[in-house]
Amino acid sequence: MSEYAIAADGLTKVFKTRGGLVTAVSELTLHVQPGETFGLIGPDGAGKTTATRVILGLLRRSGGHSSILGYDSMRDTYAIRERVGYIAQQFALPADLTVMENMQFFAHVQGVSPRQQKQRIPDLLAFAGLGEFTERLAGRLSGGMKKKLALACSLVHEPQVVLLDEPTLGVDPVSRREFWHLLGKLRAEKGLTILVCTPYMDEAERCNRVGLMVNGRFIAYDTPKAIKRQVNGRLLEFTPSDTPNTLALLQNPSRLGVDGILEVQTYGAMLHLFVDDPALRVPQLTAALSAQGITLDGLREIEPRMEEAFISLIRRQEEERVDGKRLSVVGTA
């Protein structure tokens, strides 16, 4: 057990609400190796935050087991808290303290000696790009800077493991990239184990392994590459001249008379279409659609990304749940 940095076995959390029992996390099993970056991904309400809180010992578990660095989440709560960094989902540092006061406060609370603080705090602030803002109130920082300050504060006691709950929520793309750059540095230089909850698929691609969580349980648990391979078919991208009509036709491929159409997803003005064999299907498709007076612009085959894989897997899961069979793979049989 203890060779894992973070471990959960059959972890379950049930909330008692007025409407009855709600299972937020159900039989979750995950093992994170030291130095690994693990992504807990999934839509809002999937149970990512609850799972993280239970693993940290912030919430009582209802069943199963969980530990960090071999310390049991419930029994060895304080041993965990001395060795782990955490960023809660909402920006949760005192807004009426300055950047420096926040750093010093968390350093003291974590028992970092004043001598160590003198060295570590400026280093961390420089690392987070906050060196010039030490006197600014935390509440007056931009969204990205707040997250970086939270990261710096969570690292002040040099934890071996950090758990980040949607650390880039509400942060602009540039700051998000910077934030992940910092995480990458930590992983490379300090061998930090990172568990990150995120709804962003581009962030999921940066993880060594991900668990795709829906309704409290994993529907996929592997490397991003392997997960993308789970998706059936190959992916085409194009912009149709009439998107609503095209979408309606592709969702009901028998009307179009083209076989091998597996799944269609919208992507802005573009459509993403999974087909079994592009070389065979592209000419058929172009012909069938032009018969309907629709032209396709910029048609090309692309590598499926986590986003497409994610949507496809969730859709498949839901359809299985509703009908008990795979509707999305009609045509491959």
């Binding site: 912030l58 001395e82 955490y86 949760a92």
Partner: peptide, 14 residues
């Protein structure tokens, strides 16, 4: 209300 309690509870503070 501000949610800062969560960040405090995760420290070794009793």
């Amino acid at each position: 209300e501000m949610g800062t309690i969560e960040q405090l509870l995760i420290t070794p503070t009793r």
